[in-house]
Nucleic acid binder design. Structure first.
Length: 275
DNA sequence: CACGAGACCTGTTCGC
DNA sequence: TGCGAACAGGTCTCGT
């Protein structure tokens, strides 16, 4: 799925609109087509369709990797998971492959949830905070300071990479940005979280924020049909660059499996044992 | 609490 | 060239 920078890029596009498409806030949802009813996590698909009808989109917000759309009465939560994408299209346009969930808007436009792997979720809830309460801090927020990260790290027994991808530890990082953040911090993905020295925790904080900021600056990455966004893929330091030279020291980037996820790092810049 | 495996899905790429 | 295996942005659940 899109990670924080890609979701944020989609959020901004929907909220602001463009020369080709209107902004989403202010649009009234007339009806919903559920081509893949299992997209609906809650309530039941029938109740979802009935209940969302007539509600007006108030805003397009984000929390972690969730898109949060306050409506007239309820809140629509959308998670794009591995392969989801959202786009505004004219209602007359033929459905494209994988256009599973389609929100028909009063203006003659449609918000389409395209999702080849069908892992995505939509949810209509009264109390979004109940769902979002499980998320860790927003890594780019003011409240996420170096001491906050250091304290959270100290309380954990596990390895760095799985922890960075744990959304209850920190909200928004996925496989790409976790690898990029660790390389920036010069930390091996299997280092024990609680073992970091203060300087290393500070480096990780800078690495996380730097990787996300860089992604945002490039409007996210575009890979295959799954990521649609900017050109951050041309600025990856380690992700997907197995065997290619480390941008810092030139050593070949190595790929290992961590928690069944491909993990890319520089064996020289990111040693197992601290220097 | 930490971690691995399996499930959920489809499409592309890789190796023989 | 063809075909099965491996692999892909995420998260949840179960078992150890």
């Amino acid at each position: 799925m899109p990670e924080l920078p890609e979701v944020e890029t989609i959020r901004l596009a929907l909220r602001q609109g463009s020369a080709e498409a209107p902004a989403l806030p202010g649009q009234r949802i007339e009806r919903v087509r559920l081509g893949w009813p299992r997209h609906v996590a809650a309530p039941s698909p029938a109740t979802f369709r009935k209940r969302i009808r007539g509600q007006v989109v108030q805003d397009v917000q984000r929390r972690g990797k969730y898109l949060v759309l306050p409506l007239t009465r309820d809140t629509l939560l959308i998670h794009l998971m591995m392969s989801g994408d959202l786009g505004m299209l004219r209602a007359g346009q033929p459905l494209r492959p994988h256009d599973h969930t389609v929100f028909r808007l009063g203006s003659g436009w449609e918000l389409r949830f395209n999702d080849p792997r069908k892992f995505g979720k939509v949810m209509l809830v009264e109390r979004p905070e109940l769902i979002l309460a499980n998320l860790g801090p927003e890594p780019l927020s003011e409240g996420f300071t170096r001491p906050v990260l250091a304290e959270r790290l100290a309380g954990r027994a596990g390895r760095l990479k799985p922890l960075l991808m744990d959304q209850s530890f920190l909200a928004g990082l996925g496989n790409i940005y976790a690898d990029e953040a660790l390389h920036r911090a010069r930390l091996h993905p299997l280092r024990r979280s609680a073992d970091l020295r203060p300087g290393e925790a500070a480096a990780l904080w800078r690495g996380i924020r730097g990787a996300l900021r860089s992604g945002l600056r490039h409007n996210g990455a575009s890979i295959d049909w799954v990521y649609r966004g900017g050109d951050f893929q041309n600025h990856f330091r380690v992700y997907g660059r197995t065997g290619e030279p480390c941008p810092v020291c030139g050593s070949p980037i190595q790929r290992i499996l961590v928690g069944q996820r491909g993990t890319h790092f520089c064996p020289v810049c990111q040693p197992q044992r601290p220097a």
